[in-house]
Design a protein around this nucleic acid. Structure first.
Length: 510
DNA sequence: ATGTGC
């Protein structure tokens, strides 16, 4: 039986969780305990709650009932995922779960603010030149790594080993031509091993390199500075700061410039992270099989490891190695994008606004004790004064939250409000799919997408923009943001309006 | 998501 079938059969047998147990507080809703389920906090307006299908809700319930789980939050962008829904937060002080981190370890967003007025990219020829300069440096598509980069940015095996152990350390940044100051614009610029040392990662990496499926390590390091496929993208934006005092204050602290050009990126840990994640799934699943341990809700995608075991230590080390790759990948992409802008428009200056993940487990303090907060398609949202921002540039404002929407309606920069405590300091990670890829290809048409891009004067590197990535394949972004705002989790600082999009179109003809 | 699908 496939995992999907298993899930579906559970979904069919579930009792109703959307009925009398649910109360509305304002427009946010809370799912109250029933006789069989502990509380799950759901954030979404009524029309957003209608987008949660049975399987997604069942995955939320399965995850909430899994061993050691103390909190589960469902965000407005939630949809079916790998064991746990994409768009959820799962907290455990005692267990680590690979599924609720996700198969793309530390998939993240980053935003580069450029010192360029919007008029600088009005000319379509300039935008075409930028698309070409960026694609030369930061390719899209499966398997592809960086090309046309300077010799100084070549990632040899020893630099590869260093960067997955150290993350964006000063040495690694210097070796790759990344401004060292960008490290402090990261949610986390590096990740340590299970015992809070880099040494653990060094020795874990040596063990991994003995493994046959890691024989491609050097090849995978060549993917540094690339986007990959699927929903990953790079997008040139114009910043539209919201018209209120808080937005202006945050805009200053974040380094946002109203009416100027910025570049938004979405990607993760590429083949290296995928190798690590899939290796962990098969290792843990075969141990569950061998030891006859029951899986949560019978779902193989909800395998876990209790903290302190060798299995948990190995997972945490692998997650950190993948996360370090993703971090350096994003920073290098931003450095290469800046270089591309400078080639086309000499003298362009740029600064990283922020780099923040939506697929990672972090050790945070929840209810006065340390716990692993798994954010799977969810973004950390810590408001002004939160203790963990004390040493950062965002102590007095809260950190930037980067949310991709869609090219038609824009993307958003938000900042957390004190109410975010109710969602384990988290918000959504974007719009969230409303149509599966196959469904989208069946019901949406190319002409509509093309005319949306044309009427908004948005260019793209794609000859055919992938239909399964069309704005209409995703939930209504404004309604998703309204869910977050009306629940008091976060407020909008700026809207980002697309001028051109860079995506993988290699599968667009399917 | 992924050197792309039981």
């Amino acid at each position: 039986m496939s995992p999907t079938t298993m899930n579906r059969s559970h979904a069919e047998s579930r009792t109703s969780y959307t009925g009398p147990g649910m109360i509305a507080t304002g427009e946010a809703t809370a799912l109250l305990p029933t006789e069989t389920t502990p509380p799950i906090r759901v954030f979404g307006t009524e029309s957003i709650r209608d987008t949660f299908d049975d399987l997604c809700l069942q995955q939320a319930v399965n995850s909430r009932l899994a061993p050691g789980v103390t909190d589960l939050v469902l965000n407005p962008d939630a949809h079916c995922g790998y064991g746990a829904p994409v768009g959820c937060v799962m907290v455990s002080p005692t267990h680590i779960y690979p599924g609720p981190v996700g198969v793309d370890i530390k998939c993240s967003m980053s935003l580069l603010q450029l010192d360029l007025p919007t008029e600088a990219v009005d000319d379509r020829k300039v935008r075409r030149a930028l698309i070409s300069a960026i694609c030369q440096r930061t390719p899209t598509g499966a398997g592809k790594g960086q090309r046309s980069v300077t010799k100084a940015r070549h990632v040899n095996r020893s630099l590869g080993k260093q960067l997955v152990v150290e993350g964006a350390s000063a040495d690694v940044c210097r070796a790759l031509g990344i401004p060292t100051g960008w490290a402090m614009r990261c949610e986390d610029s590096f990740h340590l091993g299970h015992d809070d040392t880099a040494g653990a990662l060094e020795s874990r990496l040596e063990t991994l390199l003995q493994r046959r499926d890691m024989s491609n390590f050097s090849d995978k390091m060549q993917q540094l500075g690339s986007y990959g496929g699927g929903n990953h993208f790079g997008e040139c934006e114009v910043v539209e700061l919201a018209d209120d005092d808080q937005a202006r204050r945050c805009g200053d602290a974040f380094g946002l410039q109203d009416g100027k050009v910025a570049f938004l990126s979405h990607c993760g840990s590429r083949g290296f992270g995928h190798n690590l994640a899939s290796g962990q799934f098969s290792t843990l699943q075969s141990k569950f099989d061998r030891w006859g341990i029951p899986l949560p809700a019978g779902d193989r995608q909800l395998v876990y490891a209790p903290l302190g075991t060798d299995e948990a230590n190995d997972y945490l080390d692998d997650m950190a190695l993948g996360a370090n790759f993703a971090t350096v990948n994003h920073l290098l992409i931003n450095a290469l994008v800046l270089e591309a802008f400078q080639e086309v428009i000499p003298g362009t200056k740029g600064n990283l606004v922020y780099f923040i993940s939506h697929n990672i487990a972090r050790k945070e303090i929840v209810d006065n004790r340390p716990a692993w907060v798994h954010r799977k398609g969810a973004t950390r949202a810590m408001p002004a004064g939160h203790h963990s921002l004390a040493e950062t540039p965002f102590a007095k404002t809260g950190h930037p939250i980067l949310l991709p929407g869609n090219p038609r309606d824009g993307s958003a920069v938000m900042v957390a409000q004190p109410g975010a405590a109710a969602s384990c300091y988290s918000v959504n990670h974007g719009a969230g799919r409303v149509l599966g890829r196959r469904h989208a290809k069946r019901v949406l048409d190319q002409a509509t997408i093309d005319s949306e891009f044309e009427s908004n004067d948005i260019l793209s590197n794609c000859r055919q923009y992938p239909i399964d990535e069309a704005p209409a394949a995703y939930k209504d972004f404004n309604e998703v943001l309204r869910s977050v705002k009306s629940a008091g989790l976060a407020s909008e600082v700026a809207r980002l309006k697309a001028r051109f999009v860079i995506k993988d179109a290699s599968k667009a003809d399917d």
